[in-house]
Structure formats: structure tokens, C-alpha cells
Design a protein around this nucleic acid. Structure first.
Lengths: 109, 109
DNA sequence: TTAACCTATCGTAATATTGCGTTATAGCAA
DNA sequence: TTGCTATAACGCAATATTACGATAGGTTAA
């Protein structure tokens, strides 16, 4: 159906799925990496940086903002975007917790 | 278009995007968590565990296998699935590297 | 005011994803 | 052989995503 049965899963599983969406498209990874590299927040240098149209970039920014991992602040005619520290730390924590759950099994399959 | 312009991005960005897809759907998160909990690999206890049809579960397993984060081993009529340690460690590493790149900026926006 | 911007939104087209029912297919047991 | 179980594959329908051009709104500078 193209529709995810969110209600069938635990809150945390849905949260992980939502946060993972910040990284599941190379353009969004590129945007996040750009934000990590630049101490100053940005606006649409991204349009000049990446070979994607302005509307496509805006759409990805909107998605990242919906997820919460970035936030934007209007500054005159521009919007400065930056990583939302709180959500970033949440993401880091929730994935670290997941990653460290794995213990090597002696050649299970 | 629904088509991601993979060629426009760096190899690593595409790799991150691919690996993130293992976690961008709650059902896949649930399957992975199941595999983390159970030392023994599994087959389709998942069908009994989750309120999704067999064909849907199989599809998610296929996607996880395509990504590489799990692997399956035919054992008679069943298939035992388990986390692929190598890819798991790669994922852990690549995300850790990303997460630790963030340094708190004093109130950037 | 006008002109030059930066952004967001809208509409459209193409493709991808999700989910399921329904079939194959394969192994094992009786 | 037959029957049972476990998987995989196929096809369909509904929805989501990706990308873009065109448009519109808001802000600053001239």
C-alpha cells in the first residue's frame, strides 16, 4: 500500500525509523555533512554546492526539519539552518544503544 | 521522479544512505532487534511475532539482505537469518564517525 | 518604488515503497 | 506417492518519495 503500519510497532522502533530517515537519502547525508563542516549555520549555499534544484533542496531541508534533526532561523531574507543539538544527541544515543547490543556469536550462520 | 540521483553524490554518502535504509522502517527495526535479542538465528518466528503477513516479512528480510546487514543460510526447508557481523561493524563505524563529528556550537541559531 | 535576492509552495511526472493475497517451490515426513 | 511446512516469487493496489519548473511571498538595497 505504500503506507507504513506505524501503529503496529513500538514507539521506540518508530522513533528510530523516523530518525534514520534523516540519513536514508544521499542528499540529506550531504546536507548534514555540510552542516557538520561549517561552524556557521547556512542558508542556500547548498543550492550552489549540490547539483540539485532549489526546490529539491528546500524539500530535503523541510524533511530534515520535520524529523527535527535540523532547525532554521529566519535572518532577514535568508534562513540559517543548523543541527539541532538535542535531537542530534538523541539520535547518537539511540543508535549507539542499538549498535552496542550486538555481540559476536561464534559463527551462527 | 521518485528516483534518487545517486551518481551526484559521493560513494560514502550513498553508502550511509543505503545502510540507513536498514533502520528507516519500523518493521525492519523490529526484525533487527529480534535478531539482536536471539542468539540463535531465526526463520519465520517473525511471522508469528509481528502482525504482518508472511509475504511482507519476507520482503523486509530481502531488503535487509540486499543491504547486507543480515544474511541467510538455508537449513533444510527453513532459512536461518542472522546479523552479518562485518556489515554491522561497518555500519556502527560509519555512523559513529558521523555522530562524533558534531561539536556543540554556542547557540548558533 | 523597483530590482534583486532568498525561500517556500504548488503542481506535475516518474519511480519507489509498503502490504497483501495468491501462487510456485523445495524439503521432509508419513 | 501424498501431505505438510517454510520460503520465495508474482502481481496488484495504494501511497510515498524524488525531482523539477513555475510561481508567489517576503526582505533588502538601490
Amino acid at each position: 500500500m505504500g503506507v507504513t503500519k506505524t501503529a503496529l510497532f513500538k514507539k521506540k522502533q518508530n522513533r528510530i525509523a523516523t530518525l534514520a530517515k534523516a540519513f536514508d537519502h544521499p542528499a540529506r547525508v550531504a546536507i548534514i555533512e555540510y552542516l557538520l563542516r561549517h561552524e556557521t549555520c547556512i542558508c542556500n549555499d547548498l543550492v550552489n554546492e549540490f547539483p540539485l534544484s532549489q526546490s529539491t533542496i528546500t524539500q530535503h531541508l523541510k524533511e530534515l526539519k520535520r524529523i527535527g534533526i535540523i532547525k532554521g532561523e529566519v535572518e532577514g531574507p535568508k534562513v540559517n539552518y543548523c543541527i539541532d543539538e538535542k535531537v542530534w544527541e538523541e539520535t547518537k544515543g539511540i543508535f549507539n544503544q542499538l549498535f552496542t547490543q550486538y555481540v559476536s556469536k561464534n559463527d551462527c550462520c
